[in-house]
């Protein structure tokens, strides 16, 4: 668990990371954000896949045959 921060001599350069609890929150938030990035990448990737298929179906000469998302 966390220790109590001693700020009697003034604030450190990064007070939010001065205690273990602060470091935990700092690292945890970055890990959480990386998960969020992956989730939204999946949403955007799905949209791009739909667009790829739509372009192939509507305008076949534009793209070379890409069977990744076609049966």
């Amino acid at each position: 668990m966390s220790e109590t921060a001693d700020f009697s001599k003034g604030l450190p350069a990064h007070p939010e990371r001065a205690t273990t609890e602060g470091k935990n929150k700092f690292v945890g938030f970055w890990v959480f954000l990386s998960g969020e990035v992956t989730m939204f990448a999946t949403f955007f990737g799905t949209y791009l896949a739909f667009e790829t298929v739509r372009l192939q179906v509507l305008k076949p000469p534009i793209s070379s045959p890409c069977p990744l998302f076609l049966l």
Binding site: V31, S34, G35, T38, T42
Partner: peptide, 14 residues
Amino acid sequence: IVFAFTPLAAGLAL
């Protein structure tokens, strides 16, 4: 888990 369960969450949402 962080990088694999999040795509699953997105897929399940769809």
